[in-house]
């Protein structure tokens, strides 16, 4: 079933279509939110709020972008507003996603996540969307409403830093 058709069915109040959409996106949104926010509790909120927004607003999808670009744009806005709220409360208390313990030989994947975690949030989200979700710099620029050059520049700096950290 095409995702656009699924959205159209959701817009018509089809709960089965919503379940299908949930299954396709919940894990991906959770990974994205966790990568951005580093908090499972907040990541769950992002999944919930994003999918509720899809349920209530499916008819607003204009069909001019990929469905995934639209969904991750909503998720990102939810994540950023949670981030701002939490930042006011206790920014420094957000733990890193991976606690590096030099005594333990960590796996390659943990090393990569730890390296990713050292990047500024604005670079981390670009890396996630580009390499995990396969979005183009155009998709990401329109989602974030920033110039394409800014997206490419964030990727450029992220890539340089990651190659350096993982050397």
């Amino acid at each position: 079933m095409d995702e656009r058709d699924t959205l159209a069915r959701i817009a018509a109040g089809d709960e089965a279509a919503f379940h299908q959409f949930y299954n396709a996106y919940a894990d991906r949104i959770h990974r994205f939110a966790l990568t951005m926010l580093r908090s499972r509790h907040l990541a769950e909120d992002v999944v919930q709020e994003t999918l509720l927004a899809v349920w209530k607003g499916a008819q607003r999808f204009r069909g001019t972008s990929k469905v995934s670009t639209w969904v991750f744009g909503i998720a990102r806005n939810q994540a950023l507003s949670l981030l701002r709220r939490e930042a006011r409360a206790a920014r420094d208390q957000l733990p890193p996603m991976v606690e590096p313990d030099p005594a333990i030989a960590i796996t390659r994947q943990e090393r990569v996540l730890a390296a990713l975690d050292r990047l500024p949030e604005e670079q981390r989200e670009v890396v996630f969307l580009a390499f995990y979700e396969g979005l183009s710099y155009r998709d990401i620029a329109s989602m974030m409403e920033i110039p394409e050059g800014t997206v490419k520049s964030r990727m450029y700096h992220a890539k340089r830093a990651l190659l350096e950290y993982l050397r």
């Binding site: 990974r31 509720l52 390659r108 996540l113 995990y132």
Partner: peptide, 25 residues
């Protein structure tokens, strides 16, 4: 490496599905 590592980031907990579905209803 990035794709493999990001794939190990946990997905949504199973019980969240019911919470979201109920909220939607």
């Amino acid at each position: 490496d990035l794709q493999a590592a990001l794939g190990t980031v946990p997905g949504a907990p199973t019980e969240l599905r019911e919470t979201v579905t109920e909220s939607a209803k």
